[in-house]
Design a protein around this nucleic acid. Sequence first.
DNA 1: TATGAATGAGTATTCATTCAT
DNA 2: GATGAATGAATACTCATTCAT
Lengths: 215, 215, 215, 215
Amino acid sequence: MGKPTSPWQVPGDRERRRELKRDAVILAAARAFRERGYHNTSLDDIAALLHVTKPTLYYYVSNKEQMLFECFREGLGRVASACGEARGAQASGRERLVEVVRGYAEAITSDFGWCMVRAEDQDLSPAMGARIKKLKSGIDQEMRALVRQGITDGSIGHCDPKMTAFALAGALNWIAHWYRDDASLSAAEIAERFVELFVNGLAPRPSGVTSGKSP
Amino acid sequence: MGKPTSPWQVPGDRERRRELKRDAVILAAARAFRERGYHNTSLDDIAALLHVTKPTLYYYVSNKEQMLFECFREGLGRVASACGEARGAQASGRERLVEVVRGYAEAITSDFGWCMVRAEDQDLSPAMGARIKKLKSGIDQEMRALVRQGITDGSIGHCDPKMTAFALAGALNWIAHWYRDDASLSAAEIAERFVELFVNGLAPRPSGVTSGKSP
Amino acid sequence: MGKPTSPWQVPGDRERRRELKRDAVILAAARAFRERGYHNTSLDDIAALLHVTKPTLYYYVSNKEQMLFECFREGLGRVASACGEARGAQASGRERLVEVVRGYAEAITSDFGWCMVRAEDQDLSPAMGARIKKLKSGIDQEMRALVRQGITDGSIGHCDPKMTAFALAGALNWIAHWYRDDASLSAAEIAERFVELFVNGLAPRPSGVTSGKSP
Amino acid sequence: MGKPTSPWQVPGDRERRRELKRDAVILAAARAFRERGYHNTSLDDIAALLHVTKPTLYYYVSNKEQMLFECFREGLGRVASACGEARGAQASGRERLVEVVRGYAEAITSDFGWCMVRAEDQDLSPAMGARIKKLKSGIDQEMRALVRQGITDGSIGHCDPKMTAFALAGALNWIAHWYRDDASLSAAEIAERFVELFVNGLAPRPSGVTSGKSP
DNA sequence: TATGAATGAGTATTCATTCAT
DNA sequence: GATGAATGAATACTCATTCAT
């Protein structure tokens, strides 16, 4: 996942090579979108990044729209798997939520982070828009559920699960915006700070009661 | 600020009338952008909303880009004035920050909220992009300063001011995304929930120590 | 309807001028289509014929497809009015049919003749295709009806109305093909020959029994 | 000539197999062209019909244009051979002409009928266009000659041979248009009706003088 | 033989912007 | 003030064609 090494001269068996190229197309698209925005990125731009001509892109992807969708899916997949791990873990609601935050931060700082956040209905056909909305909503529900669970098991104080999930998602998504210009912290470090903030809050804790670093 | 009442037949002195029309153009643009996105909104769309023809818009605004900028400025102005009030208030850093959050939520749920968040360098000429960046950065600095002040005066616990400001801004900006589909809460209510969350955190407070709603 | 005089400098009141221009667009399209075929004619070609730029065409017509449709309609309209006149005339079925043949020949040798015949479902969206099919079918039914009426009133001998209408339409439509290269006869002359042939047939009539030119 | 049985697994000697495949390509093209039109048919479409990939087609045919040409030739060949038989027959000009009409109807209702009629200069390179024009013109001349001969030998009444040939060709060619949607009659039946019409004409014959069914 | 991969050329359509009236 | 008319520039997408394998 380093530089967009053009796999157009990589040896290997056909199947594998094709897959690599397709991935390269998606990755190049993700980077271009993140850099210039979806609408300001022409297929020629992406093709140029790969040292390929425009129609070649269509060999691997059926649409500009689909490129955005694949980028989105790639990013969201990482969040989803973080959710999956959290679900499987033996831990309190809050601990699980913290785990999701860590995975989310990781995803959002990746090349696909921007697409993940900015793939919007507005830029997509109704059908595609609906698919994306559904996937996004899935993550949202998952986070709300964890909050609710935390409240139930006592690891999270009383709060509005919906607003809490929105606030968390917002803070995390926003990373995609500022991380381009200011990548001085690693995803893990950002996650750490966020966890600290969201768990303990701004108000100073009475000394001795540190609940941020779980037992 | 109700329906985009077309002021094209409103009487009054010339200067005033012109201003009203210009405002109507900006408002119509804001609503269209919020609805369809910047790139998916054509000037014809905006003109149609106002029952006017496209070239007329140019009488009040020099650019499509400028429309976005004005919308942005309109939204940000409200945040800025909230900051101003906070700055002038006799209160702790945290209290002031809370005040800013309230104003921010108000602004972001307005017609101009979407433009405020989504006006990006990508969609704008370098010059315009720089201006916007500067304005945004101003708000950011202001928030960080409040956090720092709060730490100093003891109203805010130890934390990373930059990350905290980012998290707050992210959570608030994100409102622009979901508020279109789900406006079941008022800006004030949302602000309330956010304040509660950010001030107290998720971890359950030892009973008796509620510092969120303290005067 | 002579040379495609570009009406782009013609004076006159707005409404009228606009109509003239639109007509000029349609006519230019008709000629280009007839010359090069629908698919081999680019909008640039048509624009060039009118000394105008491509987007200007869209000011008068919403589509390339619509151009074809308008050309088609223009041509068919003439046939339809011939049918109308025939319907209103005080005459035998055969005489009326002959009248339609004359109008048809006139239409098919016009600039719109080619489009009339070649505007096909294949080149058009389903919706447009259906509209055209319906219009074509209308003419067909009208001709069959005249044949049937002729049989009834004794002016036409026993025959299959459907096949007769198809044969007539085919012979007439085919004019559009060869008339481009060989315009040595006027529409009226062609019609005369066709009437003679279709009325009397190839077999030599017993002398004295000429029924073709009877009043 | 049933379904386009893909002959890609047919055994047999090399030469023969290659020929079979080439024929299958031409036939598939003919059907696709007839269905969707020349320009709306992509080579991918044709390849798909044969369960083959696009480049494979180039092994059997050098061009898309050539496909059309071969389809055209296939159709026209049948007409030409009908002409040949007529030429060799011991019969009057009219009887020979009738024979050609029968063969023509057979050809035009075949899979290649559409291509026969619609292969136009417009869709073809100048060179190819010229070849086709020449072949078409040959048939035309042949029909005119038969008409002239019929006039000479008294089997055909006085008429304009050129217009007569055009009318006949037009009526016959037009079959290709309507036969797709309405194949309720066989080619032979259509020919019968056409012969009846063209020989006897529309005007009722004085009873007792039936010259359609030759003595 | 057949195909996977790639490309060059072409085209309809959109849209912000201008300007004479 | 407002508009009808026109345009330049840009862009997604298609497709016939080629070639190494």
